[in-house]
Design a protein around this nucleic acid. Structure first.
Lengths: 219, 219
DNA sequence: TTTGGCGAAATCCTATAGGATATTTGATCC
DNA sequence: GGATCAAATATCCTATAGGATTTCGCCAAA
């Protein structure tokens, strides 16, 4: 992940950027796609063999970064393990946090979002498969958070949405039509540059999204 | 830092917890105390010699964790460097974020904070020196964020307050009396279990704190 | 005086090997 | 049959060595 406060412009020469970054992306993708399920031990040796790279420092660095994002946890001399699936309490905390941030982000995005990003947002609303919907939803919220023009907001939400993604994937939640309608409403408010409406629509979307996901939990 | 979603109970046997954690704390303390000033290169070899430990994987792990917290940034084959001091834009973003989170945290803390923590909060309000005030302020906000009962909120604010601490230390801001009065008002609202007052008092505190710090920036 | 290129030093990045520790499995005893 | 203990395994943690890259100082030329 990029640092919290330093934002590099996107127009950079493609640096090798190190193997650590590469491994980090790969492992994160495996976790998000549930190829590595939650609450599963992750062996450094196995990954090293599978990826054909050494253990030091690549995997240790990559796993440290994943740990900082809350995707894996480390126990001394006992290795890394993916975080267990969110329970009810954690889901509550996560959506409480989202309700604090995202409606505000939607309001600011309505006022300040760049026109090209807005067009991109409106164009990407087609969700045939489950995976495509999940990616589209992540991208939807990412673009709005970025449109708010605050890197802290964007980074925090990106980190949170990874967990939302994993949780949703665990249950293969197929309820997309309602969510798409809510997205449409938000996009309409953004295009109208109506901050109040965008904020309200986003709040409603998150609240209903919470209701949809909460049903999957029985603990 | 602890992971974002996994909260370990504090009542744990004192594990060795690894050298990485130790090094991480040490380096973070050096950065926060300005012993390592902002925008300064951090040599892995130097640190390894100074601390009497090897380079792999301790320093790399510790520095990776610091990078995830936005305290240092890495450039490929060019080593680590502490993040430059916040500029005006970053300060604005940080306080916009704080205004989103902390007033809400104060409201929840007023409703749900444990009595012992509240007593602890009220007892720790003595700030003789500058450093003591800085630490006390950090602890003040940390306790309230923790009192809100949401680990995501607590972790986010902990990460942000590190940067506030560094920024304040850079200018040796001595304006503590006003801040202490504002703290007192917040504590009174918390003790009265008045969520609305606590939220308003916290909002006012952050806004005035922003005004005090903003004056130091001329960029 | 400033600018461009060149070389040496410092630094980081990667790989491999040995020591220490937690987990697991199997056998034994109650 | 269940529990306890011990050995074996798997894993992580640390140290050292070699290769690749950037950076900084130096010198020459415009």
């Amino acid at each position: 992940m990029a640092s919290a406060l330093n934002e590099a412009s996107d127009r950079l020469i493609a640096r090798p950027s190190g193997l650590a970054e590469e491994v980090y992306r790969r492992v994160r993708a495996d976790i998000m796609s549930l190829k590595i399920p939650p609450d599963t031990r992750v062996s450094v040796d196995s990954l090293a063999r599978e990826l054909g790279v050494s253990q030091t420092p690549i995997l240790r660095e990559a796993l440290s970064m994943l740990e900082a994002n809350g995707l894996v946890s480390k126990r001394h001399f006992a290795g890394y393990a993916t975080s267990p699936r969110m329970d009810r309490a954690q889901l509550d905390e996560l959506f409480e946090f989202r309700l604090l941030i995202e409606p505000h982000a939607a309001r600011k995005a309505a006022e300040a979002m760049a026109e090209p990003d807005l067009a991109l947002l409106a164009s990407g609303e087609a969700a045939p498969s489950h995976d495509a919907f999940a990616d589209m939803d992540t991208e939807f919220h990412r673009l709005i958070a970025q449109g708010a023009g605050n890197h802290l907001i964007a980074d925090s939400l990106a980190r949170l949405h990874i967990h939302v993604h994993i949780f949703r994937s665990c249950f293969r939640s197929e309820i997309t039509e309602e969510a798409v309608r809510e997205h449409t409403a938000i996009i309409a408010a953004l295009q109208a540059r109506n901050g109040a409406h965008a904020e309200a629509a986003m709040r409603r979307h998150i609240e209903r999204s919470y209701g949809r996901l909460r049903d999957f939990i029985k603990d």
